[in-house]
Amino acid sequence: MSQRKTSRNGSHATPGWVPGWALGPILFALAVWLHASGLLTPIPHAATPPFDHAALSTAPRRQILGDPPTLKINDFDRTCMDCHKIFKTPTDKPRPLNQHKNIHMDHGPNVKCSTCHDWDDRNRLVRPDGVSIPFTKVVDQCGQCHVRIRYDWGYGIHGRTNGYWDPKSGPQERRICTECHDPHNPKSPAMDPISPLPGPHTLRLTNPHGEHDQ
């Protein structure tokens, strides 16, 4: 509207402190200032700090044992019985172990190895009712005591289900007990604490004194 207004103003010079001829130059000055001023408000940035994207893996937290459980020793796959056939365990009493030193045993009343491990076939587990089962069926083992959780797990209420919610569209991966929990030391909380990923860094976050939080 500016050019409209000024186009006629000139024709009616009147005394006063804005003579008509000044309008043009004032608007020119404005044009120059607008051209030079640019963006008057700096654009704030709010980016998430870098973090290790490996944390976004969907893999289970623990490695589980197969049937029979195998372990690479000197590039050869060994099963439990490869050793236990030769080296007999002296006694079933709870005691500091010479082998398997990484195991920290703290599982309530279960203090003996033979409570869960098949004494005769170390490639297998043994249920409290005496039935020998493979490691892959550990759910039946745990479920003997943790009955309610076993039911929930059966319905999919407890535990992780990955892959497809619709079994007709693709495979469902049900995580079993030992893929999350350490059977020798099922602490509370039931898994090891982990580092959280960065919190929100939205625009214009300030603390009560108006300073930017970082």
Partner: peptide, 28 residues
């Protein structure tokens, strides 16, 4: 003071200057 309805050369110049200034400001 000068209320003649027709544009003389000087007021025409002033009007043009104002119009061009306005256009420049609008463009800027």
């Amino acid at each position: 003071s000068s209320s003649e309805p027709k544009l003389d050369r000087r007021s025409f110049f002033r009007a043009s200057l104002g119009a061009v200034g306005g256009l420049a400001a609008l463009a800027a």
